[in-house]
Amino acid sequence: MLIMIASLSCKFFHSTAKLRTAALAVDKNLLSKLRKTTGYSISHCKKALQLHENNFDEADKWLAAQAQAQGWAKATKLAGRSTSQGLLGVSVSSDSSHAALMELNCETDFVARNSVFKELAQELTQSCLAAQSSSQPSGSGASMIHKELWNAEQVSHIMASDGKTLGDKVALSIGLLGENMSLSRALKMWTGGGGVELYAYTHPPPAGSTVAGGGVDPPAVLLGKFAAIVTVRRTKPADLGVLKQLCLQVIGMNPECIGTEEDLQKYAEELETSPNPQEDVPAAPPAATGEEEENTDAPVTIVEKRPKDKFLLQQEWLDDEEFTVKQILDEAGIEVLDFIRVQVGEKNG
């Protein structure tokens, strides 16, 4: 009863606390300070101070030492929960020859918007870019573009510059943010030189971003829900604006292939051989159960009106539909060799 009354009034606060937890009283100011500097949960901060008899520095050290273990403990505890939100990070080396892309997932989009999470994603992307790929050929070989895909297991064993594995870093953040996270995949790309360059962009991009690649040193990391990496060869000085728009084109219009002469020819042959060209259009999704009243006409998948939309070069330029992508790229002296488009949470290898 006494405790209850005292709880309502701060005046009695100290004496009551001392009565109840004799030796373990924690200095409130220190607790508050420790929370602010470390960001760890109140119960952990309090335990740290209790163990070190209100010695701030000792408690701080202890927390830092414990954080990794606690992060892993939390990570194990939350491991079963699904992570469908998150961010993609992409970065291109300053000579545009190497690119890395990684996906970091979390449970809610609240966390995906948080700065702690964003900083982690940036750091991980940088580590991926710096990581040596296992099959790096010494002498640039026959192929112009090399790709290596890492799964969750492989990525988590990559070493960051400070000697920690990426898995450790994710676990540390799980301890801090209290949500399950997973570093689900990463991609490393590099070119064999010879004027072949990589450029990348994300959507939605961090404010004021330019396309990644093309001599920014140190390489910037772009984060977003969608990412595109394009491999190009140029005959004119790089127009970063057009290259950025090209990445946006890949993200926004989701082409299936580049649409070179070869692609077009193959498509024409397919049309001739297949009696019904519309066959591959996916069936309409099943109508939602019962509760629609107004939508008597069930949702219909919007059928591609122009089959050419699947070829990047034949698509209309997103910014100005009077031109095709090919026209714009020819004008800018850019030849597209390859492109990659990734979306957060999509399911593939």
Binding site: G39, S41, I42, F110, R113, N114, S115, F117, L177, G178
Partner: peptide, 10 residues
Amino acid sequence: TDGPMPQTRE
């Protein structure tokens, strides 16, 4: 037990 989390800002 945790106090405000980083994402409480969000």
